[in-house]
Amino acid sequence: MNAKTDRGLKPKHQRLVLVIVALVALVGAGLLAAYALRNQASYFYVPADIAASPPAPGQAIRLGGMVENGSITTAADGVTVEFVVQDGVARVPVTYAGIVPALFVEGSGVVAEGSMGADGTFVADNLLAKHDENYMPRELEGMSTAELREELQESVAGAGE
C-alpha cells in the first residue's frame, strides 16, 4: 500500500480526526442513554426507594437488599419465612412461602419478587439470592489478618519440628 508516500499522509490524519470525532459522539450518546436508563434499568428497588416513594399495594416490583441479621423466622407451617430487608437507610419486612435458595442467609443479599401488602409488609412470590463480590474458603471465614498470620506461623513452626 502507499501509506508511506507523502500523498497518503494527509488523508490518514483526516480519517483519524473523523474517526475520533465519531467515537466521541458515540460514547457521548451511549453515556447519555445509560444515564437516562439509570433508574429504569435497575433490576430492583432498595428499601430506601420504597420509603421515599411507596409503590401502590399489589403493584409487581422487585425489592433488593441485605437480610437483616437475626431477622429470619420460620412460621409454624414450616414453609413461610419472615425476614427484614434493609439497606442501611430503611427496612422492609418481607414474608415468603416457598423453597428458599441455598444462598439465602442472614447478612447476605437477596432480591424478592412480589408486591407490597396493605400493611406495609412485602409479600414475595419468588426469592433470589444475591452473591457478593467476596470469594473466601470456609475455614478462613471470620478470621482477621492477625489471626491468619498466627495460623500461618503455627503451621510453619509445626512443619519445622
Binding site: A29, A41, Y43, F44, V46, G64, H131
Partner: peptide, 26 residues
Amino acid sequence: GLVGAINIPIINRSVVWWNSLHQPPS
C-alpha cells in the same frame, strides 16, 4: 465493529450503574 464497542464499557459498568442481581466486580 467500532460502533458496537460502545457496549463493552456498558457491560463493564452495568453492575456499578444499576442495581443488578450479578455482583459488583471482585
